[in-house]
């Protein structure tokens, strides 16, 4: 019996969302009184024993460079084999881009119930019930998993990374590597930026900024805070900002600790992408902007006057 955490990595580094999944998996394992194991498919340049800090006791790795190219069919087959040989009863993944491709395949393969996008540890007092966000963050559902093996994909930034002083045992595991059916032919990453889905802080701009030439203050504040930048749909549709920055119903959904919205009115479609943010700040000159109803802090004022003062104040705070 064990909890098996799938450890996702990119460019040789374990993703932060996977450190969250590892921390979650380890807490769940101790709740169930079983061991916490990690599974790494492919090669990384970091020391995997450091996953002990998140509470993982043993990391199983298939050291094969070809696995760094992601084929969900291939990887789901391998994880399923590992679940069998390690006797895992719960598999934990991050509900990041990789997890969204992998978890449902694994669920169908193992006939194991999947809770996609969990936000809290399971309630195991009576059955196995996991809370997840539904209706684009407007509600939560308690999902009961009734199958013997259970799969949980954890919403990024919903569970904090534990940082203990443990060290995990690292061993190679022998799994059959099926032929990949998907060939990665190119990768285009936006350099030097924090991926929106992993960001703890997000500074976002809307139509109120009047044009792409005014994004300097959004970028400056983001840079000072170590935040990612985002935008509303009209901004992406007008090509003021790249599409991957668009958050909202049809763009990406984020759940950062801070969502700092400048010049965004807060249409319901936009709120659907950001309403799981822990703290929402709204700067808008229209006191009737619907976003104020969803905000924790706000300033009714002209962004062009307010933002430079905020930037100066953050500079002072950061000692810059």
């Amino acid at each position: 019996m064990s909890v098996l955490v799938y450890i996702d990595h990119t460019d040789g580094e374990i993703k932060k969302s996977s450190l969250e999944a590892a921390s979650y998996g380890a807490k769940l394992a101790s709740q169930l009184g079983v061991a916490a194991h990690g599974l790494v498919l492919g090669t990384v340049s970091t020391d995997l024993s450091a996953l002990g800090k998140q509470g993982i006791q043993k990391v199983h790795q298939v050291k094969n460079d070809s696995l760094n190219q992601f084929d969900p069919g291939q990887q789901a087959t391998m994880i399923a084999e590992a679940v069998g040989s390690l006797g895992a009863t719960v598999v934990v993944l991050s509900n990041n881009v990789t997890g969204k491709a992998l978890a449902p395949r694994l669920s169908a393969r193992l006939k194991a119930g999947l809770v996609a996008g969990a936000v809290a540890l399971p309630d195991t007092s009576n059955g196995f019930v996991v809370k997840k966000a539904v209706f684009s963050g407007k509600a939560f559902a308690q999902v009961e998993v009734t199958s013997p093996v259970k799969i949980i994909s954890l919403t990024p930034n919903a569970f904090s990374v534990s940082n203990g002083d443990g060290s995990a045992e690292v061993a190679e595991i022998n799994l059959t590597v099926p032929a990949a059916k998907i060939k990665v032919t190119g990768i285009n990453k936006i350099k030097g930026q924090i991926p929106l889905s992993e960001a703890e802080l997000v500074v976002s701009g809307g139509r109120g900024l009047k044009g792409p030439e005014n994004w300097g203050m959004i970028e400056e504040l983001a840079d000072l805070l170590g935040a990612a930048t985002a935008c509303s749909r009209p901004v992406a549709d007008s090509h003021w900002r790249p599409h991957h920055e668009h958050v909202g119903q049809t763009g990406g959904a984020v759940a950062p600790n801070l969502y700092f919205a400048v010049g965004i009115s807060g249409a319901i479609q936009h709120l659907a992408g950001v309403n799981r943010s822990k703290v929402i700040v709204v700067i808008n000159k229209d006191p009737e902007a619907p976003f104020f109803k969803a905000a924790d802090y706000g300033i009714v004022g002209d962004a062009f006057e307010v933002m430079p003062k905020i930037i100066d104040s953050v500079k002072k705070l950061k000692g810059k």
Partner: peptide, 13 residues
Amino acid sequence: REIEGGEETVETS
């Protein structure tokens, strides 16, 4: 397809 912080081109059949 989308990846964290960018996109990736893939081929399959």
